[in-house]
């Protein structure tokens, strides 16, 4: 009897420890990183957890669709700037296509929104879409090699040399913002505009918008933002800095994100 009781106590003790440790371990698993913030905020409401990390730098972008509607062709300028500076190859067929930023009609950008006799602006506009650099990125969770990872400043970046080309991140991205090098991209890069300062990719790896992390390091704005000039069509900056221009833009306007219900907390906002 005694032995049985001792065994019972042992098992009970062990399972208590396991029970206490499991949520922490599970949290670690889900986030892929250990963050004291997530423990502290675990008691708050699900709505609150949708908010951006309150501390540190979190880079983001506000896209003012009104400006893009006013200046037709501006979006194309952004696309060209981005694809040139990053040596993005140009394929003529949609099967091999690689794109970091592109234009889509309203229904494709915002799939869950519903309208009845929608207004004219929504009819004719085409919206620039790019990687949302989510605060809770499903692609980073899915990647089996950490080839895609989230930086402390919020940028979801990629290591093209570590990517094994499993394309799990492409299945995981709910925005369709990732492209795969189905074949050698190098012959399809425009030789006349080739940028020696940014690496070309090899076949068999995934790529996407990197918020121009290489330009930010030099103190430059992202290429698409720079292409907009001072039109205000795109504003980029630290959303946690109370004095930043983007913070002002977010405070003054009603903005929407793509597919907010999925809990990815995108860092790209639209003014419509």
């Amino acid at each position: 009897m005694d032995i049985k009781r001792r065994q019972f106590l042992k098992i009970a003790g062990l399972s208590t420890i396991a029970g206490l440790g499991a949520p922490a371990a599970f949290n670690l698993l889900l986030k892929g990183e250990s963050s004291p913030v997530s423990f502290a905020s675990s008691g708050s409401s699900p709505e609150a957890s949708q908010e951006a990390a309150p501390t540190g730098v979190r880079l983001g972008m506000v896209i003012d669709q009104n400006v893009f509607d006013a200046y037709r062709g501006l979006a194309q300028k952004c696309i060209t700037a981005c694809h040139t500076v990053h040596n993005v190859p140009k394929f003529d067929n949609p099967k091999d296509e690689i794109k970091w930023i592109f234009e889509v009609p309203y229904e494709k950008a915002f799939t869950a929104k519903s309208h009845y006799h929608k207004n004219e602006q929504l009819h004719d506009s085409s919206f620039p879409v790019l990687c949302n650099h989510c605060d809770n990125p499903p692609c980073v969770r899915a990647c089996p090699t950490k080839a895609t990872f989230k930086r402390k400043d919020g940028i979801v970046a990629m290591d093209y040399h570590r990517c094994i080309g499993c394309r799990f991140c492409m299945a995981a991205c709910p925005y369709g913002m990732r492209s795969f090098n189905w074949r050698d991209p190098r012959p399809f890069i425009d030789k006349t505009t080739y940028n020696k300062e940014f690496p070309t990719r090899m076949r068999g790896v995934v790529e996407k918008c990197n918020f121009c992390v290489e330009r930010l390091a030099k103190g430059l704005q992202p290429a698409c933002v720079e292409a907009c000039g001072n039109s205000g069509a795109m504003v980029f900056g630290d959303m946690n800095d109370p004095h930043s221009e983007i913070r002002k833009k977010l405070a003054e306007n009603f903005t929407i994100q793509r597919k907010p219900s999925l809990g990815t907390t995108p860092s790209v906002f639209y003014i419509i």
């Binding site: 698993l29 986030k31 892929g32 969770r141 089996p144 090699t145 950490k146 570590r162 990517c163």
Partner: peptide, 13 residues
């Protein structure tokens, strides 16, 4: 690069 899965183990994947 398949062995990258072992070289850089990623339990969240």
């Amino acid at each position: 690069r398949a062995l990258n899965v072992l070289l850089h183990p990623t339990p969240n994947s």
